[in-house]
């Protein structure tokens, strides 16, 4: 069990009489890219928020990075990175100030922040823009920056909540190169997405319908299982079965 970074068992969240996530059970291995798919309102975000410690589950168990999500949220918070669907940098701060701020709140030392800033700007080729306000950057760059900042404190897991919304396919591809790079270094990637082409990039994917996980396998495995040409077909079959 030790090489799993996320383990959940019957994880459930109810809001009043509405069950947002219904007894979901899955494991994510260390360094795996785990795609979390589902239509709007299927319960993806709720599940992710529980794993990040933003929401208390109603019942069930889960461990993130080996820590219990009920009692050890403080330890979990130090080991996870998070990038939300809303753009999560401060527009009125410069690139450098954003990096400094997020490094600072994760408790990195000045020396570490300096080194990491340098490395990050170098990797994203943003040295020239380091002193510009983030608001002046194009969306795709902002998102890459946002992702890199989520990785600043070397988390063992990053949660990406629809990270590539509104971005053109080329930038999306570049964004995924960054994701692969991190996964190669052993960082677990937990990503929700709408885009079926992105689903193909994941090692394994789960598809949620009405709060339940209806399918969980590698993209190839799923296509075989549902006898479908593409992930899109798989998704449509599941979504239609519902209605």
């Amino acid at each position: 069990m030790n090489n799993y970074s996320i383990v959940t068992k019957d994880l459930t969240k109810r809001f009043g009489s509405f069950t947002a996530t219904d007894a979901i059970t899955f494991e994510v291995g260390q360094g795996e890219i785990f795609g979390f798919l589902g239509a709007n309102g299927a319960g993806k975000t709720t599940a992710m928020r529980m794993l990040c410690g933003l929401l208390k589950p109603s019942s069930g168990e889960a461990k993130v990075a080996g820590y219990d999500i009920y009692t050890q949220t403080e330890q979990i918070k130090k080991r996870i990175g998070y990038m939300s669907q809303k753009f999560s940098l401060y527009e009125d701060l410069t690139v450098k100030e954003n990096i400094r701020f997020y490094g600072g709140i994760y408790g990195l030392s000045n020396q570490q922040i300096k080194e990491k800033t340098h490395a990050l700007l170098d990797r994203l080729q943003l040295e020239k823009e380091a002193r510009q306000l983030v608001s002046s950057l194009p969306l795709g760059w902002k998102q890459k920056l946002s992702f890199s900042i989520a990785l600043l404190h070397d988390p063992s897991i990053v949660f990406l909540d629809e990270p590539t919304g509104g971005v053109d396919p080329i930038t999306r591809r570049q964004f995924w190169d960054l994701i692969y790079e991190s996964a190669d270094k052993g960082v677990t990637i937990f990503v929700t997405t709408h885009y079926m082409d992105e689903a193909e990039y994941c090692n394994r994917i789960s598809i949620m319908v009405d709060g339940k996980i209806k399918a969980l396998d590698t993209p190839a495995g799923l296509k075989k299982q549902f006898n479908a040409e593409s992930m899109n077909d798989v998704f449509l079959q599941l979504a239609r079965a519902k209605s």
């Binding site: 999560s88 408790g107 949660f159």
Partner: peptide, 10 residues
Amino acid sequence: GTMEILLVSP
């Protein structure tokens, strides 16, 4: 949405 990021942080 930055509040979420702050709340996920330590």
